[in-house]
Design a protein around this nucleic acid. Structure first.
Lengths: 336, 336
DNA sequence: TTGTAAGCGTTATCAT
DNA sequence: ATGATAACGCTTACAA
């Protein structure tokens, strides 16, 4: 693809390239008529300034890179949209990449984005342990980075978090308050910091009510995983009074499996999910779930990043912890 | 952010910049020891080549831009992942942007991506009528573009489509074959080509069975829209035997509203959706829906694009039409 | 095998 | 108000 360049226009009009450049950058002195003439012929010749060249000399792209583990579920897309809304207002474009839950891909995404000279990065990491050296390196080079939702503990930069501990606690309490004692928690793998926080919330709720520490089973993100765990429990004859799952999908899987085996929800087993997926209110029975303010999370991350950018890389690390809500639905309360 | 540059290394090692450059580009003659030395100090100094500069001189980025209307639902994300899988194999990175169903945003996305010197574009358009001149312009400049799912009729480039006509026909036939005569089609707005194709499929199925041409109502994409239309029908006392909706969400909305008013599905009204959303198999009753091969669509688009790129911009327009499947579930068949 | 220098498309400083 | 020109970081003839 052959771009029309500033030179083509300069030649065409017998002016210098700097004059043409000025026509496109309001801040310089230029006679209005010359400017209009240039802008006009630019349109004729199908010219628009080449941002690559501009980036090279200005060392600034007005692009923000964003990396998320996946966007199959609506969780991350909603956050992306939240971030976009504030970034767009400030004339930044957002380039999105997904790591597919893979740390290596995440690293290569980051490199691509940095290669494109993004002015900042907003990242939700895949694994707590990997890639931190690279991010560390970027931060040392004064590249603004904000992490959200899944964040590396060691890195000293801004983060936007959800109060996983608190809401796992509340969700568990919601079940305990109904007189239930035998609750199982389906936890996410331990390399995710929020998984640990939720486990802690779950256990501390038990402590508060002087109950024996609840049982925890590690479980994946999918419906199938939830089904697998439930089948396992059924096989072992180990039927709990309630299940608090770290994700809606596994919670739905659990419900499916138990229903298939003739158990009634919520009569026989109560179920609570986490993250308020689109499915939650539409499954049968509707699933109680902790909803996280995805749009706010995106907005907060974007604002922290803009702050860093405008601070010329002087990073004042800030951590914002966002509140949630427990959407109580039929799956977790006995209908009277 | 201060990048370490090729010059820093050159100075550090008392060699010329071209030697350093060569160390990073295998194809040139360079003494292995010099190369290793350079690569080593590069690592020490935290240097990696600046792709922006490289792009500027090579006029090639190994980045592909992809624009989708939204990624809140899993439809487009799945296509993106399909495309990514083949593009990654060929060392291309994919930059994704979303137009939010807005033609202007779509245009600005395209400009950003072109500005980043992507080597090709994969687009699902928001509106058939807008932005075509710009895309036309890009194509004339030999920028490879492949459209998918929602494509502009006028543009002479490669496209990947779903056979909307055929599957709307089959879906309708599936209802007619059960002896139903009074079927209403919830159609998408007419500025989307596939909306028209589905309407035609719906009507032609009626023709085949010598039935009066079925009724069509224009409806949005959301659950709420489906509910609104259903409420309207109920208010008018106009209860059909079946509803064939152009989208799963509106179909689900329809079911919700009818259920709320005491109608039974499928006993009183049968419902068929389109696009096989994640929700389809989990709502109550499970929703019959036409599933589209999203992964294949992404892969096909990517392959067509790579073809164009490797053809050095000599575009041989191709249109691939993909097949689907009707997933029959409880919402559309009377249980015996 | 290595160095020199031109060029990619801009912006920005310094003259004029 | 406009023009020359260096610079951004890199690749690539061409020369040595």
């Amino acid at each position: 693809m052959k771009h029309t360049t500033i030179k083509d226009i300069a030649k065409h009009l017998n002016v210098s390239v700097s004059t043409v450049s000025r026509a496109f950058n309001d801040k310089y002195d230029i006679r209005p008529e010359t400017r209009d003439l240039i802008l006009e012929t630019a349109k004729e010749l199908g010219y628009s300034p080449n941002p690559i060249a501009r980036k090279l000399v200005q060392q600034k792209s007005f692009n923000i890179g964003m990396i998320v583990p996946e966007f199959e579920n609506s969780f991350f897309p909603q956050i992306i949209m939240g971030a976009q809304s504030v970034l767009h207002e400030h004339n930044y474009q957002v380039l999105v990449m997904q790591s597919n839950e893979d740390a290596e891909t995440e690293l290569s995404n980051a490199r691509t984005l940095v290669g494109n000279m993004v002015d900042g990065l907003i990242i939700s990491i895949t694994s707590e342990d990997q890639n931190v050296e690279y991010y560390q390196e970027l931060l040392q080079k004064k590249l603004p980075i904000v992490f959200f939702n899944r964040v590396p503990a060691e890195l000293n930069t801004s983060k936007v978090l959800f109060d996983d501990y608190k809401w796992a606690f509340f969700a568990t309490e919601h079940l305990i308050n109904q007189g239930l004692k035998n609750i199982i928690h389906l936890a996410y793998p331990h390399n995710l910091s929020f998984a640990k926080d939720r486990i802690k919330g779950f256990k501390d709720a038990h402590k508060k009510y002087k109950l024996p520490e609840g049982k925890t089973i590690t479980c994946g993100f999918t419906i199938e995983e939830g089904e697998r765990i439930a089948e396992q429990l059924i096989n072992n004859g180990e039927i709990p009074e309630a299940i608090f799952s770290s994700g809606d999908y596994s919670a739905i899987g659990v419900m499916k499996a138990f229903k298939r085996h003739g158990y009634k929800i919520p009569e026989d087993i109560r179920v609570v999910g986490f993250s308020e997926s689109q499915l939650a209110q539409h499954v049968d029975p509707p699933l109680t779930s902790v909803s996280q303010p995805t749009d706010l999370m995106g907005q907060a991350a974007a604002e922290l990043l803009l702050g860093q950018i405008n601070n010329k890389g002087i990073i004042v690390p800030q951590t914002i912890v966002l509140n949630g809500r427990l959407n109580v639905r039929e799956s977790s309360v006995k209908v009277i």
